[in-house]
């Protein structure tokens, strides 16, 4: 029903972009007034929140300090290596668990137990388990991305139409061929949903992971700005993480759309 409403009153591309920009501009404007007027509502107060202008000048400073590239580079390397491992592990385990009752019984209980544990709680153990702090940080971004990928893969595999599997068996497909030719492509749209969400949660865990970093990383930059009470820089860090997370999720989604061209046709509409 909701999608019907959406398509029914679909505005032109130009107005869509205008509305989206306008909504961001409105948020910035609100922030501007709240912070410059130091609005204090009791439960929430903006008296210590840095103004947009302060944040912009902090961005300018960061750009000129040539610390930005090493920060970005370290963070990207950590997020992507953790994410990549989570993608491989999540999709493999998800296919296994989705297809085999035995694997489900063996693997799901410990995974369900680990799933609600937040990234912060992993820090001490990660430090103890991995001799290098780089490995512990990668591990924490890995835990962030793993579960969305795993659960969406399982969901996708279990949702594959059993009639398609029956048909493929009648057409001569072996169990391996069924997995490769039917289950995997059938679950692919759902796998990409998981990969896209996992990309976001991987960035989500970055600040936590880089709490143990010595020097570089956007998360570290954000965290250390807080420690030294450099409030404008905190917001810069937050914006950078938001932007990078959004951008890489979008990238994954586009790759997914490109690999599942049939899906858009039969899907939403």
């Amino acid at each position: 029903m909701a999608s019907f409403k959406k398509t029914n009153a679909r505005p032109s591309r130009f107005t869509t972009a205008g509305m989206q920009l306008g909504s961001v501009a409105a948020c910035v404007l609100l922030w501007h007034f709240a912070s410059t007027l130091r609005i204090d509502l009791g439960v929430i107060t903006f008296s210590n929140v840095p103004t947009p202008q302060a944040v912009i000048s902090a961005i300018w400073q960061l750009l000129q300090s040539n610390a930005l590239l090493p920060h970005l580079g370290s963070s990207l390397a950590r997020v992507f290596s953790g994410y990549l491992m989570a993608a491989v592990a999540g999709v493999t385990l998800g296919l296994l668990i989705g297809r085999s009752r035995k694997a489900e019984n063996w693997l799901m209980p410990p995974l369900e137990l680990l799933r609600p544990i937040p990234a912060v709680a992993w820090i001490p153990l990660a430090i103890l388990m991995f001799p290098s702090s780089e490995a512990s940080m990668i591990f924490i971004t890995f835990t962030g991305a793993l579960f969305p990928i795993l659960l969406n893969t399982i969901h996708g595999v279990e949702a594959v139409d059993p009639r398609l599997i029956a048909s493929s068996r009648s057409l001569g497909a072996s169990p391996r061929a069924i997995l490769r030719e039917v289950v995997l492509p059938g679950a692919l749209p759902s796998i990409f949903t998981g990969l896209s969400i996992g990309m976001g949660t991987s960035w989500f865990c970055l600040v936590t992971a880089e709490m143990i970093s010595g020097q570089w990383g956007i998360g570290y930059y954000t965290w250390s700005s807080y420690v030294i009470q450099n409030y404008a820089d905190i917001v810069v860090g937050m914006l950078l993480i938001g932007l990078l997370g959004m951008g890489s999720s979008w990238l994954i989604k586009r790759i997914g759309d490109w690999l599942t061209p049939w899906y858009r046709l039969q899907g939403k509409s």
């Binding site: 139409d161 009639r163 398609l164 029956a166 048909s167 493929s168 068996r169 009648s170 057409l171 001569g172 030719e181 039917v182 492509p185 059938g186 692919l188 599942t260 049939w262 899906y263 039969q266």
Partner: peptide, 17 residues
């Protein structure tokens, strides 16, 4: 099941991908 015995259902089972 075997390809020697082909099956067609009421609703098609063509692979959407």
């Amino acid at each position: 099941p075997s390809p020697e015995r082909g099956m067609v259902f009421q609703h098609h089972t063509l692979f959407p991908w």
